[in-house]
Design a binder for these strands. Structure first.
Lengths: 217, 217
DNA sequence: CTGATAATCGCCCGTTAGGGTGATTTTTTT
DNA sequence: AAAAAAATCACCCTAACGGGCGATTATCAG
C-alpha cells in the first residue's frame, strides 16, 4: 500500500443485484481512504453518468443484464481512458478473462473475495497492479502469449495509417520515387517511412515486407 | 484441296461398330487419292498396330468400349506424334471437345457427315486444317479462351522447374547471392534465371514477380 | 545431324535500395 | 506547457538490382 492517502480513492460500482451493490457501497463508505461516489444497476446509467463523476476506479459486474459489463467498460474508458475498471464475477469465467483485459480492464475479482482483500486490491490497481486470482493469472498469461504470437505474425496493426498507405504501394510494386510522386512527398520521406515499417515488421528488405503484407491480407 | 496427290492419303479407322467401320473403309478404298491401311474394332489393337502401319491420319471413334478413343489417341500420338487423329462422334459431346483437342486431336467429325465432306475434311487435316462443325468450333474457341485466360493469370506454368525453384526462393525474401549459395550456382546465373523469369511474367522488378507468385499460390 | 531449349557463367554500367545520422514541423498525448 | 509520436526532408555511402550483350555446355526433338 504505497498510495498517497491525502485524498480518498473515488470508487463507482456497477452491479445489477441491489443487495451486492449495497454491500460494496457500505464496505467502501465505511473504510478509511475510500469514497464511493456512485452506484448503478445498469450499463446505460453508468455510461452516461460515470464520466461526470470522475471516479478513480470502477467496480464492474461482468454479467449485467442487457449491455454486458465489458461493453459498458469500453464505453466508459472511451469517454475517459484514465478511469480504471476492475471486473467483478461470481465464478472464473475463462472466456471473458482475456476479453475484458484486452478491452482495458485493470483486474478481475471474484465477488466472494473478502472485504479486506477487495480494499487491498483496489489500492493495488491504483498503484498500477492487476489483481486477479492465481489461476486466472496463469490463464491470462497464457492468453497473452497466444495473442502476442498472433500479434507478431500480424504486425501490420502497429503501423500508422501513413505507413500502411506506403506499405500498400510498396506491395503493389512501386519504387520509392513513384510512391513519392503519388503521395506528393519527397523520396527521402518515403524511405524514412519504409525504414520505420521495416523495423516494426522486423524485416530488412522490401520483399520481406511485401510477403508479410500479402500474407496478412 | 491443295494436297499433293502423287501419293494417296493413308488412313486408319478405329470404330467398334462393324457396319460403320466397313462403311468408312469402303468409302475410303473407293475414293481416288485415299488408301485405308487398317481398321480396328478396339483401342488395344489400334495402339499396338497403328505405329507400324504409319497412317497419315486416324479416324477415331470417341466412344470405344473399354479404353475410350481419347486415351487411344494419346497412346498412338505418344508412339508417333506425326500421326494425325480426327475424332468421330454421333452427337456433339460438348465435354469431350476440348479434352480431345487438348490431348492432340486435329479435328472432330459427326458420323452423320456426308461422304464427300468427310473426304474433304481429311484433306483439310492433312493440309493443316481442323474440321469441325461451326457450333463445335465456337465452343472450342470459347474453351480455348478460358484456358488462355487461366494460363495468363497463372503464368507460372510457363516457367521451367529451375526457374520455379528460383522464384520460390526469391518470393521467400532471399537475395541473389543467398539463392546462389543455396543452389550451388553463381550469382550471375541466378540473375540470368531471374531475367528470364521477369520476361515470362512480364515484370520488371523482384517485387512484382513476388506479387504474381504469391497471388497464384 | 541440326536447331531449340535449358542451365550455366561473366562483364559493364546505371539505377534502386537500404543503413547511418540528423533535423524540422505538426499532431497527439500527457 | 511539456513530452511523445508522427510526418517531413537531406546527405553520404555501400550493396543489391536489373538491362545489355555474349558465351559454353547438355539435352532432346525433328
Amino acid at each position: 500500500m504505497t498510495t498517497n492517502q491525502t485524498q480518498p480513492v473515488r470508487v463507482s460500482i456497477v452491479e445489477d443485484d441491489d443487495r451486492i451493490r449495497n454491500m460494496f457501497i457500505i464496505l467502501l463508505e465505511g473504510a478509511p481512504g475510500f469514497r464511493c461516489v456512485s452506484g448503478y444497476s445498469n450499463a446505460e446509467d453508468a455510461i452516461t453518468d460515470i464520466p461526470a463523476k470522475k471516479p478513480d476506479i470502477v467496480l464492474m459486474d461482468i454479467n449485467l443484464p442487457g449491455k454486458n459489463g465489458i461493453e459498458c467498460m469500453k464505453a466508459i474508458r472511451e469517454a475517459d481512458p484514465q478511469i480504471l475498471v476492475v471486473m467483478l464475477t461470481v465464478y472464473e469465467d475463462n472466456e471473458r478473462i482475456f476479453e475484458s483485459l484486452a478491452a482495458g480492464a485493470s483486474g478481475y475479482l471474484l465477488k466472494s473475495t473478502s472485504p479486506s482483500v477487495i480494499l487491498e486490491s483496489i489500492h493495488d490497481v491504483i498503484d498500477g497492479g492487476a489483481p486477479m486470482s492465481a489461476q486466472i493469472a496463469r490463464k491470462v498469461v497464457h492468453s497473452f502469449h497466444t495473442i502476442q504470437k498472433d500479434k507478431h505474425q500480424n504486425d501490420l496493426g502497429s503501423l500508422t495509417s501513413r505507413e500502411h498507405e506506403i506499405l500498400t504501394l510498396l506491395a503493389s510494386g512501386y519504387m520509392y520515387k513513384e510512391i513519392a510522386g503519388k503521395l506528393f512527398i519527397a523520396k527521402d520521406t518515403v524511405k524514412s517511412h519504409i525504414r520505420n515499417i521495416y523495423e516494426k515488421l522486423q524485416v530488412r528488405t522490401r520483399t520481406e515486407a511485401v510477403i508479410k503484407y500479402l500474407d496478412n491480407n
